[in-house]
Amino acid sequence: MAWFRKSGRKQLETSDSDLWTICPSCSAHIYKQEWEAGLKVCPKCNHHARISSTERRDLLIDSGTWREYAAHVTTSDPLLFSDAKGPYKEKAAAAKTKTGLKESVLTGDGKIGGIPVSMAIMDFRFLGGSLSSGCGEKITLTAEHAGRHRWPFIILSASGGARMHEGIISLMQMAKTCAAIARLNDLGVPYLSVLTDPTTGGVSASYAMLGDINIAEPHALIGFAGRRVIEQTIKQKLPDDFQTAEYLLEHGFIDHIVNRKDMKEFLHRVLQYGKRR
């Protein structure tokens, strides 16, 4: 960004967004380099900002070991769906252009501290990480792939729920993916679930809750029904910590809350116990 140096005035106008990141949770101004070095975690309040599937992969997988799997799968339009804003097809195409992804989940295999694993990493940037036929298919294929190799399977969730534009087909992906997880259980293959902000709706009510171990990032929003829907239904205000990772830990639905910087080491520790012997 050489152009702004030409004028001192412009530098003042742009310096905020170029040099600083404002924490979306506590509004602290964080020096951008510090923010990136800290893996987009606020040093003041430990807010874990949303990151992309490729960033997550790079944080967890030993460098040079990643091989993408089921990469051919992309979006389908089983209902030929169209809403007020136009055809779903166009919306999906725009999401692909914007993110460079073909679906809301990145799938593949690699190693964590030398241990081979299969992994599915959801990406919230792609249509809110919604569970679609393509997403369900990728997760199912990768779970089956993990089963054939007896590799532990790890899903990192980040999703607002089912993709409405695919109607009942998206709802059925909950059953499809859970059946694939059941097969891993029968085979004795470890399955770990990492819940990141947000993990809600149909994804929370399927594979995300079913890990042998459920792990969450701090403060992640995790829940089935939306906050507003619940407030309208029960006509009372919900506690501030409602549906946070901490709330779920307290209520017995997750095993651990793990900081982003410690996640790889934590997964590696767990995987030692799930090794085939």
Partner: peptide, 10 residues
Amino acid sequence: QAEAIARNLT
């Protein structure tokens, strides 16, 4: 609620 539904699906 999420866990109960997920468990049933599996």
